[in-house]
Design a binder for these strands. Structure first.
Lengths: 225, 225
DNA sequence: AATTATATCAGGGAAATCCCTGATTTTCTG
DNA sequence: CAGAAAATCAGGGATTTCCCTGATATAATT
C-alpha cells in the first residue's frame, strides 16, 4: 500500500505551487495529491478527498476583518469540518500575533516562507505524526517575545504585592537553590525566620511545598530571572 | 515650584499634536513643554531641554530595516543619550513584535492609539514614577499571546529531549507539590527510582536542589502549567 | 485605639530530601 | 553488535524541609 503522507496544497501563485510540488516530491514519504488557488476551490474539492496534511498559504494579511475566507478562515473551516486533516500554515508573515491566531484556529504547524523545503518537509512529517511544529526562524522570534513577556508579566497583571518584599527576597534565593541556612546567612536573619517566610508563602499560595511554590511563583511571573 | 511632569511630544501630524496637547493640559499634573514633527527635530531640541517624559509616536511601521531614525531609532537614541527621560510609546500598531521591540529599545510605557487620553495620562504618570505601563488593550492582547506561547514553549525550544519522558513525568509531579512517596505511588515505581530521576535532573540541569530545578524547568518552559 | 500585616525569633519532632555508591534491564543508535 | 542512554531498584546516613505551637515588635490601616 501507498503509505506516503498525502498533502493538499493551497497557494495562489502557480509558480509557488509548482516549485513546492517538485521540492516535496524529493521526499519519498510525501505525495502532493491536490492543489488549489483559493479557499473556495479547496472547499469544493474537500468532500471525499483523501488528505492527510493541508499545506496552507496564509495569503491575506488578516490583520483587518476580511471576508471569512482568508487563510485564517480556511484554517478554521477545515479544522472544524475535517478535524482529521492536519494543517501546516505557510506564510510570509511570521509575527507572534498571526502565528498565535493561526495556531489557535487549528493549525498544527507553522512555517515561514523564508524557511527552506527541508523545514517544510519536517513540518509535514511532524504534524502528521501528531506533533506541533514551528519553523526555526519563527521559533527564534517567538522565543524572544516570550522572554520579553516573561519580563513584564507583572506589569500585565496587577499582582505585584502578592508576596511581601521580605518574602520575595526569600523566594528569590529559594529559586536559586539556597538552603534555609544559606538564606539566613545571606539575609542576616535566623533560619527560623526564613522558615517562617517560606511557610507563609506556601500558605498564601496554597501549595504543598517549596517545589510547588516555585512553580506557582514562576507561573505568575514573580520570579526575576 | 512647578512640579508638573514635563512632557515632550513627538508626532508628525499637527492635528494629533494639538489634540493631545489640549487633552493632556486637562490634567493639572502634566504640562507639554515641547513638540516636534520628526526625530531629527527632536534631537536638535534635546540638548539643554528639561524633559521628564517623551511621548513618542511610532510613526513608521519598523518591520523592515529603516533609516535609523524611525520611532525605534529615536527611542534608542534618547534612551542611550538621555537616560533620565522616560519614554512612552504611542502607536497605531500594537502587535507583540513591535511592543517587545520598542520596550526593549528603552520605552517604559506603551499606549495604543485606540486608548483614550485617560490611559495616556496614566502612562505618563506611571513611567514618571519609575513604573512600566502597558495600556489595557495591549495588555489584553499580550496576555493572550503570552498564554498561547506558554502552551507551545516545548514546541519552540529544540530542547524537547533535555529531560527524558520519565524524568518529565517526575518533574511535572514535583512541580505540583507531590512528595517522593506520592510520586512513586502515582507512577507505580519505587521511591528510590523517583529519587534517582530527580537526582539525574538536578545533575543535568546543574542546580542545587529541587526548588532550583523547578525554577530552571519553568524558565525553560519545561513545565506544563 | 484596635486590627491587620509584616518581620523577627524559638523548640522539638516527624518527614522528606539529599548524597554516596552501587546494580540490572531495556531501548536506542551508530 | 557494541556502546550509550534510559529506567528501574537498593542501603544507609547526613542534612533539610516540614509542621506544630508558640512569642514579640513594628508599621500600616481602619
Amino acid at each position: 500500500m501507498d503509505d506516503r503522507i498525502k498533502v493538499f496544497h493551497l497557494e495562489d501563485y502557480k509558480i509557488m505551487r509548482d516549485g513546492i510540488k517538485f521540492l516535496l516530491s524529493q521526499d519519498p514519504g510525501i505525495v502532493v495529491v491536490g492543489e488549489a488557488r483559493k479557499g473556495e476551490e479547496l472547499i469544493e474539492k474537500l468532500p471525499g478527498a483523501d488528505i492527510d496534511v493541508l499545506l496552507l498559504d496564509i495569503y491575506l494579511d488578516g490583520m483587518e476583518e476580511q471576508s471569512s475566507l482568508d487563510g485564517f478562515g480556511v484554517c478554521e473551516y477545515v479544522h472544524q469540518n475535517y478535524p482529521a486533516i492536519k494543517i501546516v500554515a505557510h506564510s510570509v508573515y511570521y509575527d507572534a500575533d498571526r502565528v498565535a491566531r493561526i495556531m489557535n484556529n487549528g493549525a498544527m504547524g507553522f512555517v515561514s516562507k523564508k524557511a527552506g523545503y527541508e523545514e517544510l518537509i519536517e513540518a509535514i512529517k511532524s504534524v502528521h505524526s501528531g506533533k506541533k511544529y514551528i519553523c526555526k526562524e519563527t521559533s527564534k522570534k517567538l522565543k524572544n517575545i516570550n522572554e520579553f513577556l516573561e519580563g513584564i508579566v507583572d506589569t500585565l497583571r496587577g499582582e505585584k504585592d502578592f508576596f511581601s518584599q521580605r518574602e520575595k527576597d526569600v523566594l528569590d534565593l529559594l529559586a536559586r537553590g539556597f538552603s534555609t541556612k544559606n538564606i539566613a546567612q545571606e539575609l542576616f536573619i535566623t533560619e527560623k525566620t526564613v522558615e517562617s517566610h517560606r511557610k507563609n508563602m506556601v500558605d498564601k499560595a496554597r501549595v504543598k511545598n517549596t517545589a510547588e511554590l516555585i512553580a506557582f511563583a514562576s507561573a505568575r511571573g514573580f520570579l526575576k530571572r
